[in-house]
Amino acid sequence: MREAERLDWDIALYLEAKGVRPSCRAGCFYCCYPWVTLSRLEAEAIRPHLTPAQKERVLREGPRRLALLRERKDDPGFPGWFFQKAFQEGTPCPLLEEGLCGVYPHRPLACRGVLTESDPERCRPDAPQPSAYLQPPLRMARLRMEALWEEERARYGFLVLGEVAGLLYLLERLPKEKEEAVALLEGLGVLGGRWGYQVV
């Protein structure tokens, strides 16, 4: 995916120019508990690289996250609540493998922009002094996401945004026509609201 390569390059140039050394390391995965949004094109790029175990976890976790979203998509505090809940229950991203991202070269753009110089323990949701993520990589990731959204609109005529596990779970059932995609997501009760799926 071109946008992922460009983002990685942009972030590497920024870190080098600023002399910034992120504290993020293999085995540190507190950032794998929050709610992560991606587009259909990102999900399509990830899906072929899933292991059988990851596919099985997506089949379990996708419906569960859709149900949570159906109940709480209008709750302003939903992302923070979800982060705490996932951490307490020990249910990180279903793509995680033994503390490492199992699709690291293909991970979502949103994940690529999450970096910190802080002590990784401050990335825990229950940390007394939460970590501050580096803002330039987050902004770079957002810009690349927006470019990919335009590519998706050009390819399909519309854009679908949703949470990683739920969208991977729904991907094979996701219609190619906008009205049908809207009907599917409305029928599941996950379309719209503050945090629900978006079809644009």
Score class of each variant (00 low, 15 high):
Cys24Ala: 00
Cys111Ala: 07
Glu61Gly: 01
Ala17Gly: 05
Tyr104Ser: 03
Gln88Ile: 09
Glu89Ile: 04
Trp9Glu: 00
Gly157Lys: 10
Arg72His: 15
Pro175Glu: 12
Ala45Val: 05
Phe29Asp: 11
Asp75Gly: 08
Tyr156Trp: 11
Leu96Pro: 08
Arg65Ile: 12
Gly19Ser: 13
Cys111Asn: 03
Gly166Thr: 06
Lys176Gln: 10
Pro22Ala: 06
Pro137Trp: 01
Cys111Ile: 03
Glu61Pro: 01
Cys93Tyr: 10
Glu163Lys: 07
Glu177Tyr: 04
Lys176Gly: 11
Pro94Asp: 12
Val114Lys: 02
Trp35Leu: 14
Val103Glu: 09
Ala45Gln: 13
Arg40Lys: 15
Arg194Asn: 08
Pro48Phe: 02
Met145Ala: 07
Ile46Lys: 01
Gly193Asp: 09
Gly80Leu: 13
Thr51Val: 06
Leu7Val: 00
Thr91His: 11
Thr51Leu: 11
Cys93Leu: 14
Pro22Met: 03
Leu69Arg: 12
Ala110Phe: 07
Leu184Gly: 11
Arg124Glu: 11
Trp35Arg: 12
Gly162Tyr: 04
Gly193Gln: 09
Ala43Pro: 02
Glu152Asp: 13
Leu115Thr: 00
Arg57Met: 03
Glu163Phe: 04
His106Ala: 10
Leu138Trp: 02
Pro120Gln: 05
Gly77Gln: 15
Pro76Trp: 11
Gln88Ala: 15
Glu98Met: 13
Arg25Met: 13
Pro175Trp: 05
Glu5Tyr: 00
Gln198Glu: 11
Pro120Asn: 12
Ile46Glu: 01
Gln135Leu: 15
Leu161Val: 14
Ala12Asp: 08
Lys85Cys: 15
Glu97Tyr: 01
Leu168Gln: 02
Asp8Lys: 02
Pro22Leu: 02
Gly113Gln: 01
Ser118Cys: 13
Pro92Val: 15
Arg124Asn: 08
Met145Trp: 03
Ser118Arg: 13
Gly157Asn: 11
His49Thr: 01
Ala17Cys: 00
Phe83Asn: 13
Leu41Ala: 12
Tyr33Arg: 09
Arg124Ile: 08
Tyr104Glu: 10
Met1Arg: 06
Gln129Cys: 11
Glu179Leu: 13
Gln54Asn: 02
Glu172Trp: 00
Gly77Val: 11
Ala165Val: 04
Arg2Pro: 10
Gly62Phe: 09
Leu41Ile: 03
Thr116Ile: 01
Lys18Pro: 03
Tyr169Glu: 00
Asp119Arg: 08
Val36Ser: 05
Met145Ser: 12
Arg40Tyr: 11
Ala26Tyr: 09
Cys32Asp: 07
Leu138Cys: 06
Pro52Ala: 03
Phe87Ile: 09
Pro63Trp: 08
Arg124Trp: 11
Pro136Thr: 01
Gly99Lys: 04
Glu163Leu: 13
Tyr30Ile: 00
Leu96His: 06
Gln54Tyr: 04
Pro108Arg: 06
Arg64Val: 10
Leu174Ala: 12
Tyr133Lys: 07
Leu38Ser: 09
Gly62Val: 10
Thr116Val: 02
Pro120Met: 05
Gly196Thr: 05
Ala4Val: 07
Ala26Thr: 14
Gln88Val: 12
Leu41Phe: 03
Glu117Asp: 12
Glu89Val: 02
Phe29Met: 04
Tyr133Val: 02
Gly99Asn: 04
Met145Val: 12
Leu109Cys: 01
Glu16Lys: 06
Asp8Asn: 03
Gly19Val: 08
Cys28Glu: 15
Cys31Ala: 10
Glu172Lys: 04
Lys85Thr: 14
